[in-house]
C-alpha cells in the first residue's frame, strides 16, 4: 500500500512502509520549464520537514525542493544528474529526487491528499 501526499509548494511524497519518495508535481515541472540541472543531497543526510532537500534549475532560474517530511536520506535519483529532463518527462514517476526514511509518520497528516491538492491547483488557476 502506498499513499501520496502534497505540499502547497508543489512537492509530492509517496510513502511505502516507512520510506518516503519525494519529487515535484507535474504542475511544478510545467511551471518551471525545461529542467537543466538537479542537485541532490548526500545519502545519510538527516533533514527536518521544510529543509532544502534538493535544487532544481531551469534555464532561467534555480528553485529549492523542500523536504515535506523529516527523516534520513537513504537514496537519491542519480539518473537525474545525467538526464535532468526526466523531471519534465515524468515528474510523478522517474523524475523523483530523493528517498528518505521517515522519522515521524504523523507529519504526513499535515499534508494534502490528492483531492485536496487538485482543489488547491484549481484555486491557483
Amino acid at each position: 500500500m502506498s499513499e501520496i501526499r502534497f505540499t502547497d509548494q508543489h512537492e509530492w511524497v509517496r510513502v511505502e512502509g516507512n520510506t518516503a519518495t519525494i519529487g515535484i508535481t507535474d504542475y511544478a515541472q510545467e511551471q518551471l520549464g525545461d529542467v537543466v540541472y538537479v542537485e541532490l543531497p548526500e545519502v545519510g543526510k538527516a533533514m527536518a520537514a521544510g529543509d532544502e532537500a534538493a535544487v532544481v534549475e531551469s534555464v532561467k532560474a534555480a528553485s529549492e525542493v523542500y523536504a515535506p517530511v523529516s527523516g534520513e536520506v537513504v537514496e537519491v535519483n542519480a539518473d537525474l544528474e545525467g538526464a535532468p529532463g526526466g523531471v519534465n518527462e515524468d515528474a510523478m514517476g522517474r523524475g523523483w529526487f530523493v528517498k528518505i526514511k521517515l522519522s515521524d509518520t504523523s507529519e504526513l497528516a499535515k499534508l494534502m491528499d490528492e483531492d485536496a491538492y487538485k482543489a488547491f491547483l484549481e484555486g491557483l488557476a
Partner: peptide, 11 residues
C-alpha cells in the same frame, strides 16, 4: 519549492 521563482512565471 518555487515560492519566489514560480510566482513570477505564473501570470
Amino acid at each position: 519549492m518555487i515560492r519566489a521563482n514560480l510566482k513570477a512565471l505564473m501570470t
